[in-house]
Simulated scan of single mutants.
Amino acid sequence: MKSRKVNLSSSLQHQSPAPSVDRLSGLLAHFRVQASLFHSGLLCGTNTFDAIPGRAFLHVLRRGSMQVRHPAMQGVEPVLALNEPSLLLYTRPLAHVFVNPPEEGSDFTCATLDFDGGERNPFVAALPPVVWVPLREVAGLQPALDLLFAETEKMHCGSRLIANRLFEVVLIQLLRWILDHPHKVGVSRGLILGLADARLAKTLVALHQSPGKPWSLASMAQTAAMSRSAFAAAFRQVTGMTPAAYLADWRLTLACTMIRDKRPLKLIAMELEFSSASSLSRAFSQRFGMSPRQWAQMQSAPAVFMSGY
């Protein structure tokens, strides 16, 4: 899946009307995202950002123009030319280089992002490695950006903390926009496209909010107001998974966060509708190739970071 700029000239693919349910809160309640401001102002010359395990980025280009260069790899544009105010979201570790005209520079505000769950985070798994969107495309974004720039231009007591929270607001607004325009950022299948579908979104939101409910294909289809056969076919076509496989994967993804938080396996099993702790352990081992205990030990091991920006 390639990173790409929004193509304003292309005709939009057919989409269902925007769902009336809250598609973000349930996911963000389980998988938080924390932002940390690290730069505000001009960036001149060449600036390199290394691929550090667990590190994502959100860059806001306020004015100016520049090139962004990436290493040669499948699914990523090697060179992006930014010629207008833009958002650049890096959802996972990816080295990138900013090349700016030295005589002009570019006015930037940048934050690192910590996606809870790492590569198991639903947004990290569902989005391209790079998302590039002009600021003018995201309706309602400007007030948050005005506050963000005001806090970063003149430091006051608590400015960094406020800027971090405002970056998170900008990210949520961007995610909201992506849910309404998945094809514009290159999403053609998976969770994001499912949440963009008015019928499937109702079921996906319900699964996210109540993972421990004894869901059946019939109850999932009923939530979407569809027949079982039509729901199963649409769900698989849009997300690339069967409803049962998605539910099982979602429960195990939540189990990872609970195990990391040192919750007892027996209580996790009860909360996520597994018949027993041993049943959860078997499903976990089949999915991840290791037991919950082994997985927890890996998470508590000291992280090894690369040097970089």
Rank of each mutant, 00 (worst) to 15 (best):
A283K: 09
D180Y: 10
F284K: 03
V130I: 11
M155V: 15
I172S: 11
G190T: 08
Y309W: 12
A245L: 08
A150Q: 11
Q34P: 04
G190W: 04
A150Y: 11
L58Q: 05
F108D: 03
C256Q: 01
V187F: 00
M1N: 10
A233R: 15
H70L: 07
V205D: 07
D249Q: 12
W215C: 00
P129E: 12
R69C: 11
A224D: 05
H96I: 02
L267T: 13
F167A: 07
K202C: 01
R92V: 00
A150K: 14
S20K: 13
T257D: 10
S216V: 06
I192C: 06
Q294T: 13
Q294P: 05
L135M: 11
A72G: 02
W132N: 15
T109D: 09
Y246S: 03
Q15Y: 10
P85K: 03
V131D: 07
R282G: 03
E151T: 15
E119N: 10
H59E: 00
L82E: 00
K202E: 04
K266I: 11
S281H: 06
V60M: 01
L254R: 04
K262G: 03
R176D: 14
S106C: 11
L252A: 09
G105T: 08
S278L: 05
S188H: 12
A29C: 10
R199W: 03
A51C: 06
F115H: 11
C256I: 03
L200I: 05
F231K: 06
R63I: 00
V21L: 08
W215S: 08
K262F: 09
G26D: 03
R282W: 07
H181I: 08
I268Q: 01
M241I: 03
M220D: 00
N100R: 11
A233H: 14
S65E: 09
Q209C: 03
P78Y: 05
L141I: 14
E271D: 12
A81R: 15
A196P: 01
S86R: 03
V130H: 06
H30G: 10
D22Y: 00
T91W: 00
F235T: 10
R287A: 10
V304C: 12
S159Y: 09
F167T: 01
L171C: 04
D197K: 07
S275W: 01
M1E: 09
S36I: 06
L127F: 08
S36A: 13
N83Y: 09
I52M: 07
Q286R: 14
K5V: 14
I178K: 05
D116Q: 13
Q34H: 15
L171P: 05
R165C: 12
R263Q: 15
A303L: 12
S291Y: 08
G75T: 04
A56Y: 00
L89K: 09
A303F: 02
F305P: 03
A35S: 13
Q222S: 14
V60L: 15
W250A: 08
S9M: 13
V124M: 08
R263E: 14
A18Q: 13
T46C: 10
A29S: 15
W295S: 08
L27K: 02
Q237K: 15
G54A: 06
D197T: 06
T91M: 01
A196E: 05
M306S: 15
D22A: 01
V205Q: 04
I259Y: 01
A233S: 15
F98A: 06
S25T: 12
P78C: 01
A277Q: 08
S275N: 11
Q15P: 09
E271P: 08
K184D: 14
V130G: 04
L179R: 02
S281K: 00
C110K: 12
L87K: 07
S3N: 13
A303I: 04
